[in-house]
Design a protein around this nucleic acid. Sequence first.
DNA 1: CGTTTGACGGTCC
DNA 2: CGGACCGCCAAAC
Length: 110
Amino acid sequence: MSKEQPTFFFKVYNIVRQVPRGRVTTYGAVANYLELGSARMVGWAMNKSFSSEKPVPAHRVVNREGRLTGKNHFAHPNMMQELLENEGIVIVKDKVQNFAKVFWNPSQEL
DNA sequence: CGTTTGACGGTCC
DNA sequence: CGGACCGCCAAAC
């Protein structure tokens, strides 16, 4: 049993797991919602998310540009795109199309 | 315990 | 439009 409880990591996982299917969020949005003050922490948490027991849809988290910056950290660089496309999200050149439409803001939706 | 790093964001040039 | 640099903050070394 892991110990991710008193950490933002756990919070980040929780938020990301609440992202509805067919939507994406950004590191900055999550960081802002959790008041982390730094989007980097979210990315850091995502890296550790692979050590988490529960599956974290990290593929639903993109950067401010809607670009799949973390795709390189998946099992396969194109897996992230496939997962997103599987949810109905259109990806072109590793960038989310209609980003404003598929963007899910925790501070707004939650 | 000091230094480096990192899946970001924003500004500057 | 793209490349470079700074700021944030915690974990890893």
